[in-house]
Design a protein around this nucleic acid. Structure first.
Length: 552
DNA sequence: GTAGGGTTAG
């Protein structure tokens, strides 16, 4: 035992705060020494000391040591369990954390608010949202943190309506949301297909009234929600008036312009930003993907090169994926393949996904095969890629292969995500699935759709049955295309809005190729502007053209 | 008198 100054002996009350201080200072070497002292003085088995040791080892990343100390304990308090669950959760083992939580319940230890807050992040992240809600409902005295973490969980699980409901309810109970609450609900608003521009405005309004808008992170998150709800103008207005901006703020605004295909602004902002601060590797992902979305091929390459030469940033797979995307857009598939071959790191799903995406626009049997083989090895459960591959095979005339991919998908138990399109009218959201008849105006919608399809066919639209079901007659294929959720939502919008107004729809997956073509024609014959957000970007349709330049 | 607890915007 090291001799304490003045000869005073530490006791069991001394160790917990001292161990906490070690964690706080990040001095784990000292922490281990103090562990030794505690053992020598016989305090190692004191529950408080033990808990503090578990917490200290957890924060140092030594989760195994923490687990050993936990396992050896004869009497564990609820704090012990919570600390150990937290140790697993914070060291990247959410599944094990949940398993331990279940064990805790089996051993009839009652969880409290702290336990809930510790378990919550593991319960999304593992996709167990109902369990999370049960836990939340079980807490007698919910505090601000409990509400915020439940909202956050809903936002992560893409359940924005529920997140918004809780946000309203907590305010009714006079629990005042703070920045964490607002960041949660804003995240939901940015990502969900059932959130609208009006929601972004509501949240922004609350942020202003509560003064939380003064917080840079909140303000940046609000900008992002405007971008993702389709209002670049609102986003830019806030951006221009901000007192302080950081790398994230700039990156969001740049990638925002990219998502909308606005190349001029992408470059303008990036050039301005470079004079103010040094971009990091994530900024470059934003800039490169923005270049790709906006069709800035040469500029994208310049950025990519300057990233290493000028800024000394090592390229990650996301950067390579953007470059493959750029080459794909330009139709240079062979070059893209060579580029991947020469990569100094192992190409991952994002890179192969870009290559396969390129084949959708520029079908190439050899390259398709190469990308698909690698992808299905790396990520066999991604349903979107199977569908994409099947569509590419169809456009290559390989009907058998296309069919076999669908069969393979079923055999492997890969679940298809149901596609839907959402449109907001008079503050109400309307959701359409493929072949949807649940809307009260369905009869009218299908009649109008039929007429509209005839009109655009006269204008030159040819249905592309690559995107239809394959095992049916051609006429049925064409009919099935007409029932796609994108078309239903757009027609519903056309019927119910003034002739000069813009139609805004949001699809949860990537827009279908035939719907994309049809929408271009619809914008031409109806003289309407149509803005469609899909899972990847925004499409601004006007007078027969789309802002994505037909590559997305 | 001691221990655990929201996570962060790209």
């Amino acid at each position: 035992m090291r001799q304490p100054r003045g000869g005073a002996q530490p006791n069991n009350f001394t160790f917990p705060p001292v161990l906490k201080a070690c964690s706080y200072l990040g001095d784990f070497e000292e922490g281990v020494k103090i562990h030794g002292d505690a053992a020598e003085l016989g305090y190692e088995s004191d529950v408080f000391v033990r808990n503090s040791l578990i917490a200290m080892y957890s924060k140092s990343g030594a989760v195994d040591t923490a687990k050993r100390l936990f396992d050896e304990m004869p009497d564990r308090s609820v704090v012990t369990w919570t600390t150990m669950i937290g140790a697993l959760a914070q060291n990247g083992h959410p599944e094990e954390a949940l398993a331990l939580f279940r064990r805790m319940l089996e051993e009839r230890v009652r969880p409290n608010r702290a336990t809930f807050l510790t378990v919550m992040p593991c319960v999304i992240r593992c996709g167990k949202i109902e369990q999370a809600r049960k836990l939340f409902d079980g807490i007698a005295e919910k505090d601000l943190a409990s509400w915020s973490s439940m909202i956050e969980a809903y936002a992560r699980a893409d359940m924005f309506e529920e997140a918004m409901k809780l946000f309203r309810n907590m305010k009714l109970l006079e629990i005042v949301p703070d920045r964490v609450t607002l960041l949660g609900v804003t995240r939901g608003c940015s990502n969900s297909a059932v959130a609208s521009l009006r929601h972004a405005q509501l949240i922004h309004g609350f942020a202003i009234r509560s003064l939380l808008i003064e917080d840079l992170m909140v303000e940046t998150a609000v900008i992002d929600s405007y971008v993702r709800r389709g209002s670049l103008n609102s986003a830019r207005r806030i951006f221009d008036q901000m007192r302080e901006k950081n790398l994230v703020t700039w990156s969001i605004m740049i990638s925002g312009y990219g998502m909308h295909g606005r190349g001029v602004e992408v470059l303008e902002l990036f050039n301005r930003m470079k004079c103010l601060m040094k971009p990091d590797h994530i900024t470059f992902v934003s800039v490169l993907s923005a270049c790709s979305h906006a069709g800035l091929i040469d500029e994208g390459w310049q950025c990519f090169n300057s990233m290493t030469t000028e800024f000394g940033i090592v390229a990650h797979s996301e950067h390579y994926a953007c470059m493959v995307d750029l080459l794909g857009r330009a139709g240079q598939l062979e070059k893209a393949r060579e580029f991947i071959e020469k990569m100094p790191i192992k190409p991952d799903c994002s890179v192969w996904g870009s290559l396969l995406g390129a084949c959708r626009i520029h079908p190439d049997a050899k390259i398709t095969e190469l990308a698909a083989t690698s992808l299905f090895e790396l990520d066999p459960q991604n349903s979107g890629r199977y569908i994409l591959l099947s569509n590419i095979y169809t456009s290559l005339g390989k009907i058998e292969e296309a069919h076999s991919i669908r069969v393979l998908m079923r055999k492997r138990g890969v679940k298809k995500i149901a596609g839907y399109t959402v449109i907001e009218l008079n503050n109400k959201l309307y959701k359409f699935l493929v072949g949807d008849c649940s809307n009260p105006q369905s009869d009218l919608i299908y009649r109008e759709l039929e007429r509209l399809m005839d009109r655009i066919k006269e204008a030159g639209y040819v249905p592309n049955t690559n995107f239809a079901l394959h095992d049916v007659e051609e006429e049925t294929q064409v009919k099935s295309l007409y029932m796609h959720s994108e078309k239903l939502a757009i027609v519903f919008g056309l019927i119910n809005t003034r002739p000069e107004s813009t139609i805004r729809v949001h699809k949860n997956l990537r827009v279908c190729g035939d719907c994309h073509t049809a929408t271009k024609f619809i914008s031409k014959v109806t003289k309407r502007k149509i803005v469609m957000r899909d899972s990847h970007r925004f499409h601004h349709f006007s007078d027969g053209e789309c802002s994505c330049g037909d590559y997305w």
